[in-house]
Design a protein around this nucleic acid. Sequence first.
DNA 1: ATCCATCTTCCAAAAATGATCAAAGTCGTG
DNA 2: CACGACTTTGATCATTTTTGGAAGATGGAT
Lengths: 260, 260
Amino acid sequence: MLPAMRRARIIELLRKDGMASLKDLTDALDVSLSTLRRDVDYLCESGHLERTHGGAVLNVNRHGSFEPARDIATALESSAKRAIGQRAANLIKPGQTVIFDSGTTTAAAALCVRERGIAFTAFTNDLAIATLLSASPAIQVFVSGGSVRPGSTTLLGSGALHSILRLHADIAFIGTHAMTATDLSDTSIDLAEIKRAFLMAADLVVLLADSSKIFSRAFCSFGRTSQIGLLVTDTRVSPEAEADLRGRGLALDIVPEVPE
Amino acid sequence: MLPAMRRARIIELLRKDGMASLKDLTDALDVSLSTLRRDVDYLCESGHLERTHGGAVLNVNRHGSFEPARDIATALESSAKRAIGQRAANLIKPGQTVIFDSGTTTAAAALCVRERGIAFTAFTNDLAIATLLSASPAIQVFVSGGSVRPGSTTLLGSGALHSILRLHADIAFIGTHAMTATDLSDTSIDLAEIKRAFLMAADLVVLLADSSKIFSRAFCSFGRTSQIGLLVTDTRVSPEAEADLRGRGLALDIVPEVPE
DNA sequence: ATCCATCTTCCAAAAATGATCAAAGTCGTG
DNA sequence: CACGACTTTGATCATTTTTGGAAGATGGAT
């Protein structure tokens, strides 16, 4: 296994609970303790996580750091996200108004929609999504104002919130850091505030969440699964989780990972 | 098999998981390790991917997600714009609030300020400027809302205008499409509306205009040269134009083009 | 204080790398 | 078609990087 891949997996494993012991990680990754220790040190140096005695915790403050380590960011742009994005993109009909929440999965969706070439109106609080959507002349892009979250491309704050509150859209694509059977949660209050507003602003709320997000919790709750019209996720979601969510009446769309 | 074809296949294989080891690639492509290594080096040079020990990861920027740096990169090819930007950047003092109008010259200024590393607050209606400024943790970036002008990274419309009207800044860096001895003008009514608001919102208005803009006219007037506190331009401005502008009491800062 | 898990430091084996070189292939020219 | 100039390929080898383990130091519990 590639060192870069291993480090990406470490981050992914940490996202699950926010922390993990080195023992857990060696079991999961099947490498020696020394190697793992070095990886964790490296990720710590680069600011992705912090050490504790016996383990590591994810650094929540840096959702994206100053110069996000390219290799890791790329690894997480997995085929799962692309597949989810593709499915989401196909939900949009010409002429509709669509909200794109900030995030990498929603950005994947935006990229896929742009490639479909259909004409519609987009609203987003993510500079990266706005930029990539604006490259298509068929798409009218609106951007929430607000302050840029340091190290990321997300717009937050009262400026953003006010522009959203006046909004009404056909579809909202929402990303999340974590979800349980009942709750959606993310890492900061400001983020949660915006997402909460998005949930209210659209007829159909589509949650885009790869399976690593499912059945974990983050600091700040921003909504309930009952507010979700459709959850698009990948095939690695556990059967129990799937049954549980379906049992609660949630519509699931589980997309296979297409290697493009 | 053609080298070009082989390289295309490499990219394709990388898309699957975002990364792959050289071993995987030789197995899949049936070429020697040396050749593959050279291919990967080549693709790395050309920016399609990045190397890690034992393998390669796909460069997500090339994947088309977004790169607002492109316009700015071309802007900086002009040594005049770079010099103007540098001079503008030096006007900012730590802690000030600064408006960056949309445009490539103002973007050059933003890039120079970021490299100075000082802490200040920025407001802009340009997605590219917002993105590049937000990469610095010292800079607090506010973005006007609004709709994206098709084919550019400029935010326009009532959303943008309203957020600007509530604003007050120490300095505003304004770009222009054209200027005469008395008038500033640009190509669209929407653009002019925004610039007009910027002119009112700052204590000191600094016009950044390379010499090609001086003494020409565009469709829509947005202000008068008397509203300008300082004009930063390059040495190719004609002596008559310079004398005329100085005669009207306009402060000029003519910067030599520093070749890099 | 004592014990045990964890951490650091070091070392040798294994893997990957960059450089070099001969063989094979490609191209343009007469 | 034959020739030389040039590029591409595959193999080898010394060097660097990474890995896994061992020995000793450190830190946190009881």
